Computed example of a mutant assay.
Amino acid sequence: MDQENVNAGRTVAAPAERVFAVLADPTAHSAIDGTGWVQEAADRAPLTEVGQIFRMGMYHANHPDGDYQVANQVLVLDPPRAIGWRTGTEKDDGHLEFGGWIWRYDLAPLGPSETLVTLTYDWSAVPQSLREHIRFPPFGPDHLSDSLHHLAELVSGR
């Protein structure tokens, strides 16, 4: 595959500020994900600055431990227009190591009560050593659209 990113878009019936607030809340991420991979937020504080680290409990049947934790670093924080982070792990000595993939949400207001949300997953910086063990993207073709559907439901209170 030559393309090293995928994206999906959806119109959400809410102002961009409300959508952004949900995305900046790590405790909402498991509900947005919808695969069962993303579990509870270990760091529950809202995302407020570039460089901020937030950890999430994860589960994946193909992971050697099943349950594990990721450390995410905020790379983009432009309220209420964009938010994004890279995912990695924290070593026993506290050193963070990132895998080379990024999650990014871009929000474009379509009026006072609608927002076009584009979710992009980019794995262009993943080193070859990881690509030998993990298929990219590591999810099916409907995952991004499904996540945006969950986000829309969460934002609207359904």
Rank of each mutant, 00 (worst) to 15 (best):
V126I: 11
E40I: 09
P26E: 09
N72V: 03
V70C: 01
G140S: 12
V74A: 09
D33A: 11
Q73T: 04
A31E: 13
V50H: 08
R55M: 04
A14P: 07
H29K: 06
A45D: 15
D25F: 06
D43W: 00
D65P: 01
W101G: 01
P141H: 12
P46M: 05
R131I: 04
G84W: 05
D65G: 06
R44I: 15
G99M: 10
A31D: 13
A21E: 14
F136E: 05
A41Y: 04
R135A: 14
E17Q: 13
Y105F: 15
D33Y: 08
G140P: 10
E114A: 10
N62V: 09
I32D: 07
A125K: 13
G57F: 00
Y121I: 02
V38Q: 01
A45F: 03
W123P: 00
T48I: 07
M56I: 13
P127I: 02
E114D: 13
V12D: 03
A41G: 06
H143F: 12
V117N: 04
D78K: 10
R44P: 03
H150G: 05
F20R: 07
E49N: 01
T115A: 12
T115N: 08
T120D: 04
I102Y: 04
V22Q: 06
H149A: 12
W101K: 03
E49P: 02
E97V: 14
S124E: 09
G100C: 08
Q39Y: 01
A31T: 13
A61Q: 12
L130K: 05
T27W: 07
L148H: 02
Y121L: 09
V126Y: 03
A45R: 11
A16D: 05
